[in-house]
Design a binder for these strands. Structure first.
Lengths: 192, 192
DNA sequence: CAGTTGCTAGACCGGTCGGTCTAGAGTGGC
DNA sequence: GCCACTCTAGACCGACCGGTCTAGCAACTG
């Protein structure tokens, strides 16, 4: 038998990947099970609340991992302009490497499920909140005044999310660079 | 019998509304048929390519109508700052009036279907292209230099789309105002 | 009035959906 | 050795999915 918790982890990672590519309703549990080579009984043992719980945890997991990568990119940047550029490049790389199938791991599920499932909406909301706080922290580090960091972080997150969505629809990552460039302008304007 | 084309129109409008609220895979044809009181035979007579065609045309229709409303809002504004604010308020009103069920009529379907259906992705891409051009036109009218209008329009569209998505997830439209405010700064910076 | 066309009407299809249930394999403590 | 517990395993369920098909009504054409 597989080690404790190994199956749960494998199912969760497979689900996160599939939800990111195909959305919530576009992903069937049978597909998740087939790709993670797990039987249905295991799924409902580890996720007794079913698909909703699986999606909530998948979003939380993906959010944490992408958040960590984003933080890493941002910490390596020495100023705001290169910092937001690095965030954009992270998503651009993800899009290009997956042939525009993998955009933001939260957005697709969020839009589909925000109205119909409170647990999923809440999980998405939490992830975005964490990202926004991380961005605000970085902005302060780059010299943005305390009282302007939070609103600016919200704008950076919104704009980046919109750009990733548009890039996916257009099958062209150029818009991400355009947007991060303008965000650089905006932050420098707030800093000086 | 109903007048020519009346059923087609009714089905299309119902579908557009449901796709906007629930997404592509979250909306069943039976639900569309029930709410528009049309039999299945009519659907496949008017939309022989099935659900994919229905979604493509729904996105195009909704895109045109929202685009017209947006243009109207923008034309009534006398400067860039109030123009982008009006665009944001349009979406904010839509969210509030629908209890955060109706966000952008394109975004949800776009993210779900961009990878799996080329006709739908293309329809979404077209709508976003039209909106971007409309925004660029308005920006030129507000004194943005010719060569900066197109990139700035892409940023305005991205940021607004991201803000509407975040507002829906957070069930709070405040972020839309924050973003449009920053967009106002950005455009004034480009104008002066 | 017969024939044709445009459209409605809904029964019906195989397949897949999310979810439940029972059986049993593996593993620890006693 | 034996029990208790954790987890795997997959058959099975009713509901619903998108899509097809045939029948027939209504209105125009000759």
């Amino acid at each position: 038998m597989a080690p404790r918790g190994e199956t749960r982890e494998r199912v969760l990672r497979t689900a996160a990947e599939l939800f990111q590519r195909q959305g919530y309703h576009g992903t069937g549990l049978n597909q998740v099970l087939a790709e993670s080579r797990a039987p249905k009984g295991s799924l409902y043992f580890h996720f007794p609340e079913g698909k909703e719980q699986l999606a909530s945890e998948s979003v939380a997991l993906a959010g944490r991992e992408v958040g960590d990568s984003l933080t890493e990119s941002v910490l390596a940047a020495e100023d705001a302009r290169s910092g937001v550029a690095a965030m954009g490049e992270y998503f651009a790389r993800s899009l290009l490497e997956s042939d525009f199938e993998k955009g933001c791991p939260v957005a697709t599920v969020a839009l589909e499920s925000a109205a119909e499932s409170e647990p999923i909406r809440s999980a998405c909301d939490t992830v975005y909140g964490e990202w926004r706080q991380g961005i605000a922290l970085a902005l302060r580090g780059w010299g943005v005044p305390e009282d302007r960091a939070e609103p600016l972080a919200a704008t950076v997150l919104s704009s980046l999310q919109g750009a990733v969505m548009l890039a996916r629809v257009q099958k062209d990552v150029a818009v991400i660079g355009t947007v991060t460039g303008h965000l650089g302008d905006l932050i420098e304007q707030a800093t000086s």
